[in-house]
């Protein structure tokens, strides 16, 4: 079984809100002092992949598209149990969007050694669009199952456990297939062992440029233009609940809350 996991390195979503800023010119978040981490759902996807490998054998390849600090994310993935890493790196990708990213990933997956399954995080922790997974599946012409949290079995058709209202659904997927992964207690990302971290530091990372993928710069040019991006300013309102007695105040409070549809 050859599982490919596509991961994205994003700004740490846990930075204090005060520090989060947007550059009005480029309409992008400012890096500031925030660290870069692997997008949370991608970590769940990695965990699902590594569990599948541990059960069914085979190997896991991680692929990421990004700037100069991408190797950090790839090394962490290697430490968590991935066997190989591919870094898609090209100056022309700087401004690309979901469709350009999907094109590159699809080309890279096609270039890899016969993957059986491709996993994505349900959506990236920065833009929360959830587009890349479906677009890659589309480009590859593979079946896609969304909101998966676990796999069962060892061969095609592989059972994918898909989250559903109040429970889950089991989908049998003929391989090759793609899936987007959501978080669940069964796929909490493992803490890499220090031994593995040290080994990961020595593993090579394959680099592919657009040319290596057989793509031209205009094929990955953004098709979506961000018009505006701003940090919401939280506004506080203060309303005093009036009333003569405590009971009256409570009733008025309850009414106010009901009007706000809070209760």
């Amino acid at each position: 079984m050859h599982v490919v996991v596509c991961i994205k390195q994003i700004l740490d979503p846990e930075i204090p809100p005060r520090e989060f800023q947007v550059d009005p010119q480029t309409k992008r978040a400012v890096r500031g002092r925030a660290s870069l981490v692997i997008s949370p759902f991608d970590l769940n996807a990695l965990e699902v992949a590594v569990q599948l490998k541990e059960r069914a054998g085979g190997r896991v390849t991680v692929v990421s598209l990004g700037g100069e600090e991408t190797p950090e994310a790839l090394r962490r993935a290697l430490a968590m149990g991935a066997d190989e890493a591919v870094w898609i790196r090209d100056g022309a990708l700087e401004a690309t969007d979901a469709s350009g990213t999907a094109r590159c990933l699809a080309a890279a997956i096609a270039k890899l050694d016969e993957p059986d399954l491709v996993l994505f995080g349900r959506q990236a922790g920065d833009w929360d669009q959830g587009l890349v997974g479906p677009m890659v599946a589309e480009a590859l012409g593979w079946p896609l199952v969304t909101n998966v949290f676990q796999t069962r079995g060892e061969n095609s058709p592989l059972e994918l456990l898909q989250q559903a209202e109040g429970g889950y659904r089991v989908v049998a997927a003929t391989l090759p297939a793609a899936a987007t992964i959501t978080n669940h207690e069964a796929n909490v990302a493992r803490l890499p062992k220090v031994r593995e971290i040290m080994l990961a530091n020595r593993k090579p990372i394959t680099q592919w440029s657009l040319g290596d993928l057989g793509l031209a710069a205009d094929e990955v040019a953004p098709r979506v233009v961000v018009e505006a991006l701003a940090v919401p300013v939280p506004e506080g309102h203060c309303t005093f609940i009036e009333g003569e007695t405590a009971q009256e105040k409570a009733q008025n409070l309850a009414r106010a809350l009901r009007e706000l549809k809070v209760i």
Binding site: D12, E14, I15, P16, P17, R18, E19, R33, A34, S35, V37
Partner: peptide
């Protein structure tokens, strides 16, 4: 490892 402090979810810098 990620942010050089152990206090998860702190709102302070």
């Amino acid at each position: 490892e990620d942010r050089a402090h152990p206090f998860r979810g702190t709102q302070a810098s």
